[in-house]
Amino acid sequence: MIQLKDIGKTYPPRQGFDGVTALEGVNLTIEKGDIFGIIGRSGAGKSTLLRLVNGLESPTSGQVWVDGEEITRLEERDLRFARQKIGMIFQHFNLLWSRTVWENVAFPLEVAGKSKTEIKRKVDGLLERVGLTDRANAYPSQLSGGQKQRVGIARALANDPKVLLCDEATSALDPETTTSILKLLKEINRETGITLLLITHEMSVVRSICHRVAVMEEGRVIEKGTVKEVFRNPVHPLTRQLVHQTEEEGEGKGLRIRCEAGNFPALWHSLRQAVAGRQVTVRVLEGELNEDGGIVLVLEGDLEQAEKALREAAPDWVEEGGISLVP
């Protein structure tokens, strides 16, 4: 769906600015319906890369293809039409504060010259989809960050795009809101088959929704592959560092345990009762079977409480439960 071929991007020097090579030799192919993450430190060139995809920026060398069209060769007019089929959401939402929620979502439809009745039908449907029907007449200043991003998503989806570009879409949100926005994006991907390309500097975002990931450093893609591969076997030092960081975050917050698949239903059931009232939440970390048939769970929250809960749920866990602590 998206193809970047040998992309280079240099911002030329001008008065008071030395010029910078933002991208160099970037090759990426993103399949239709994929959720593709690009991760990297600040200044790695992620935003520049994303902006190439809808032609907000043009590369110094190389080609950008989206849905069979070479974006880099389109005329102004055709580029505008192409952009209507490429949605984009932003870290700071970028809503028009002079328009209501409803009018904000109507904006791209007005731009595309849709009829009044069609706009109404579309906007109502989209607001329903993102759960903001009751806030339709509010102004952005009256919304929470999460709600603003939902408006941003509804707006980006208005012209039924094939691709949705997300530039740090959850970086300004708290963890819970981040989770709900990511969930929404994931659902939309599943329902519509839209291709998601998202940029982030948080590995946890990649981990929770992406299928594939590319790691960027200083304008180059230094590692790419499925999220599973990259997490299991990070090669480049930066990737290792990023992967390590998320693991540390996970560890710091609670107790990680691995249980055998056969014991999982029983353990899950008793854990649910044991954690009630303890400020501990249970999460299935990998959501899939490991090679040895184990499932990794994390009991998030206070470590002591988590241990107590585990003891209560499975008193003889070490001997018979087939449960072990993951270091």
């Binding site: 809808n54 907000l56 952009r83 904006f107 791209p108 007005e110 731009v111 595309a112």
Partner: peptide
């Protein structure tokens, strides 16, 4: 906000629409 202008452009607005809308 520059970001809002960028958002409008990303939705395929013409320059005229950026000014008027």
């Amino acid at each position: 906000d520059k970001g809002v202008v960028e958002a409008a452009r990303s939705m395929g607005s013409t320059r005229f629409q950026v000014v008027t809308k």
